[in-house]
Simulated assay, not measured.
Amino acid sequence: MTIAATLEKLTLFEGFSPADIETLANRAHIRSFPAGDALIRQGDLDACMFVLLSGKARVTFHAPGGSREVAVVGKGDIVGEISVLTGSARTATVTAIEPVSAIEIDKPAFSDAIAGRKPLLEHIASIVEQRRAELAHVRQEAEHAEATSSGSFLERLTRLFS
């Protein structure tokens, strides 16, 4: 299957014309990552996204209380799109848990494809809002877990030393 054929099947690219998809596909690259390599690191300011073609990767959110697995992604999943679309730092780390092959799309290519196209921008904005809400929920759960574990630790210390 070609890069263009893969992209046109994905929700993120709904509304793109065949010419837009082809232009984007011509500017994309196939990347390979061995198991254990990071495709994306939380906090980085990279400007590309990946569409997984094969393999699986773990999405991990790092919080003060420790790391938390958010998801395991595989064929057809997209990672890194929030940073490309918003210019913000990476919100999670994505690490290959088996060899991964992925389409890499950089920000300039994506920007050229959507520039000045309000319907595409609206569609993409709704997807980004959904992803951000999911991440906010994960952050909130991680903060709650940290607060709960701190409280129970304090209770244990109080019992032990009272």
Rank of each mutant, 00 (worst) to 15 (best):
L53V: 09
E98C: 02
A136K: 13
I97T: 11
K118L: 14
G87A: 05
L12Y: 01
E122S: 12
V128Q: 05
D37S: 14
V100H: 04
S126C: 04
A35T: 04
S150L: 15
E141C: 08
A115I: 09
I82W: 00
S32C: 11
G87R: 12
S152K: 13
S32P: 00
M1A: 13
C48Q: 10
G15A: 06
E8T: 15
F13C: 10
R68Q: 09
R31H: 12
R41Q: 11
T91A: 13
K107D: 02
S88Y: 06
S111G: 12
F110A: 05
F110M: 11
G87Q: 08
T148Q: 11
P18N: 08
E8H: 13
V79T: 04
A115F: 09
V73Y: 01
R117A: 10
A113G: 06
D46M: 09
L12W: 04
F16M: 13
T158F: 07
E22I: 10
F61K: 15
R139V: 00
F13G: 12
L53N: 11
I21G: 06
R159D: 06
H29T: 15
A115K: 15
A102K: 03
D106L: 09
I97G: 05
L160T: 09
S162I: 02
R90Y: 02
I21C: 10
E8S: 13
D37R: 14
S149G: 00
R139K: 09
V59P: 04
L154C: 01
G36W: 03
